[in-house]
Design a protein around this nucleic acid. Structure first.
Lengths: 245, 245
DNA sequence: AGAGCTAGTGTAAAAATTACACTAAATCAG
DNA sequence: CTGATTTAGTGTAATTTTTACACTAGCTCT
């Protein structure tokens, strides 16, 4: 009989890549760490999984404690387990991404894990020298989001309940890092019948107001089941500059 | 300062869903467990991750020790961490899938983990009452394979170096659980220029011999980089019976 | 020599995708 | 109140991709 005790000396954590969308910009929520290791570094919100807690439960707890967020779209992405990724011992972490309406977000400042909580543009993450291997985790989650958003109608999780088609298009452009053709985008989106036309208009804008739409959660459920396709192809007209830094 | 020691009492394992393809049938390699818990049950090949071992390294070690397999296509799929999934304590496991040419497989019988090693058809897995949550893991990995095979040219990893187009089609039909149109399949596959026509023929078959092809690993590399699409749609002519049990 | 098998091939119709430019409706400044 | 500014909203034709579909070719075995 083996001595299994040698294996029961590790820990695991969950880390959350929380995406939000604001002003045509895709953002990630980061915390300034209050604890060692990497104290005062920016990093992903995450913590040890408690002994009597499932992985998903732990990920949701972190979302709740740190950002006051409930009922959020959450998906496991990948586990990271390099031998020396954590200075305190052997720790593997499970990365999740979640999609959040920024307006719903209410930071909990009295948390003893984070000194500060702030949204950062995805493009700026690489400048921050994140704790642990969190930059790689953010990258992998962003790539995963990019892939999944083509196949599932999850983009709506990032928008307020009422939105315009242009806002929706900007969201997809931010996630896919490309430009989309306005007419083709509208044609495609509307043809899926996932939007409810609210017969309501934008107000207080200095230009022709746009119609407001709502996401149709019932149809969403149907589609989720019969695993459906949501392909969006890029326009060939304009080319965005590649963000290198 | 917190007492972090309470967290360092868990263990983690890797489990491998090893896919092979034989006689138009997609198979999974299972072991008959030699050890508690679940002794004498069939289960996925897997083991504890050693203290000084990365996750991927551990998954490859399991492949090597158990099946004598090297240089295999391997991909992390998902982690499973339900609180009571392991009777010995808190253990989360990282599921991998790998794609293997059955001919290369040489079981290592003198392993003290497995009493027996055997290929099972994917369709039969649910009858076996696998150890732990291994059935769910196998299901998730199969779904992942199904998704990925549409987007990456990985099917070839399951075939011998030289194969016919019909064999390739049967492989895709087994993975996608659907029938494909012969002419459309060939048109599509050949148009990707991922196959090298070997100017060689099948021999010893009691019918018109088919041409043999080889996978073009150089083009494969190019495609992997520029993240390419490999969509295969099903034929509407025939419908396979749904395997319910 | 013929039966039995699987290999291999082309085309036309339908559907999806793409490219593309002008008018409409609000605010704001003068 | 007029014109400038800004974004909303809309249709079509060309191209590409996908789909459906059936017969001949070439080997072995009896």
């Amino acid at each position: 009989m083996k001595n299994f005790d040698t294996y029961f000396k590790s820990a695991f954590t969950v880390d959350n890549v929380i995406f939000g969308f604001d002003e045509s910009d895709l953002k990630i929520l980061l915390i300034k760490r209050q604890e060692e290791p990497y104290i005062d570094h920016w990093g992903l919100p995450g913590y040890f999984v408690l002994p009597d807690e499932d992985l998903n439960t732990a990920a949701r707890r972190v979302l709740k404690q740190l950002a006051g967020l409930d009922n959020v779209y959450l998906e496991q992405v990948k586990s990271f387990g390099a031998v020396n990724r954590h200075p305190f011992g052997r720790v593997i972490t499970v990365a999740y991404y979640s999609l959040v309406k920024i307006a719903d977000f209410s930071p909990q400042p009295d948390n003893d894990v984070a000194k500060e909580v702030r949204w950062f543009s995805v493009a700026d993450i690489s400048k921050l020298d994140l704790a642990f291997d969190h930059e790689e985790m953010a990258d992998v989650c962003f790539e995963t989001l990019k892939r999944q958003v083509r196949v599932r109608p999850i983009g709506f999780e990032l928008l307020p309940p009422k939105f315009t088609l242009t806002e929706l298009q900007h969201l997809y452009e931010a996630i896919l890092e490309t430009d989309l053709d306005k007419r083709n985008f509208r044609k495609k989106i509307l043809s899926m019948n996932l939007l409810i036309d609210l017969d309501e208009m934008q107000a207080g804008v200095a230009h022709r107001p746009a119609k407001l739409y709502q996401f149709d959660y019932e149809k969403y459920q149907e589609f989720l089941q019969e695993g459906f396709s949501f392909e969006l192809k890029e326009s060939k007209r304009k080319e965005r500059p590649v963000v290198t830094d």
